[in-house]
């Protein structure tokens, strides 16, 4: 006899099968095929798509994507952690207001916000004009590496802030007071108590920023002007212009595998504490 609860899970299961499991299996299937002229029913099994990826050109691209994503994650963390602490120290109603303000930009479409940055950073945009007033003439911002990283930090920052804020909020203030009572100075209290307790939130936040950043192609396209290709752009190119869906699928699989590995490592770092809250993953 099945319970009502089990029945209510069916639509979700069906949804996940249709929109997650099946597409994923198709990608895996495609990645092992060779189908040069893109005709239905004409293909052979091969490992060539994976072998091709071992080429230094593509590995360099993978490396670059990781470097960009790590930098974006670190910057987001460095902004979000102090901010999270600051927000937690505010009275309750102000906290909610601050969090809403932080999330507010996400109500506007991601693409629109990125296009807005294109206008702001362009030679005739506000940011460059302002820098000009400060004496930095001829600053180029749009279509630079910094613009790409700025775009990543700006777009994914809320995903860092929210889990950090939640995990900081969950820390029992009595624990911090006990630490100081027992003779820890402010720094020791932070290093030995507060930081470890907020680690699950930090790990979640880092993953939530790292994953979209490492696979983005829109930001590098719009703010990098196609000059700073990332692995996401390569996948996009294989599907949309090069019409090599098989190689594109293979790269997607490689990227997915690596993300899973990173995810596993992150869980190890956070240890058991990851189960105590603040996590989204």
């Amino acid at each position: 006899m099945k319970t009502f609860k089990e029945y209510i899970a069916y639509p979700y299961g069906l949804w996940m099968i249709i929109f997650i499991a099946v597409p994923l299996l198709v990608v895996i299937w495609f990645s092992f095929l060779s189908n040069p002229d893109f005709k239905m029913g004409e293909y052979t099994f091969t490992l060539d798509n994976y072998k091709e990826f071992l080429d230094p050109v593509y590995l360099e691209l993978l490396y670059r994507s990781f470097v960009y994503a790590v930098i974006a994650t670190l910057i987001s963390f460095m902004i979000a952690y102090p901010l999270g602490n600051l927000i937690v120290s505010l009275p309750e109603h102000r906290q909610n207001l601050m969090i809403v303000l932080m999330i507010l930009p996400m109500w506007v479409n991601f693409l629109l916000r990125t296009y807005a940055w294109m206008v702001l950073l362009s030679g005739s945009g506000l940011v460059v004009k302002f820098l000009g007033l400060l004496g930095f003439t001829d600053a180029t911002l749009l279509y630079t590496q910094s613009a790409v990283i700025l775009g990543m930090v700006y777009n994914f920052f809320p995903y860092m802030l929210l889990p950090i804020y939640t995990s900081l909020k969950k820390i029992d203030p009595d624990l911090l007071r006990a630490a100081t009572d027992l003779g820890a100075n402010h720094f020791q209290m932070f290093v030995k108590v507060k930081f470890p307790l907020s680690l699950p939130g930090i790990v979640s936040g880092c993953m939530m920023v790292f994953m979209p950043a490492v696979s983005t192609f829109v930001i590098s396209n719009l703010l990098g002007g196609g000059k700073y290709m990332l692995i996401g752009n390569l996948i996009e190119q294989q599907f949309l212009t090069a019409n090599n869906w098989n190689f594109g699928s293979a790269i997607s699989m490689v990227l997915m595998t690596i993300i899973f590995l990173v995810l596993g490592i992150a869980r190890l770092i956070a240890g058991k504490e990851i189960d105590t809250g603040g996590q989204i993953l």
Binding site: M118, S122, G123, L142, Y143, G224, G225, G226, K227
Partner: peptide
């Protein structure tokens, strides 16, 4: 040529040409 290139684009040309960027 790449160091001389501002960007590889398809759709933002109008704006960038109009602003003299």
């Amino acid at each position: 040529q790449k160091p001389l290139v501002m960007a590889y684009v398809t759709d933002n040309v109008k704006n960038l040409m109009a602003t003299k960027d």
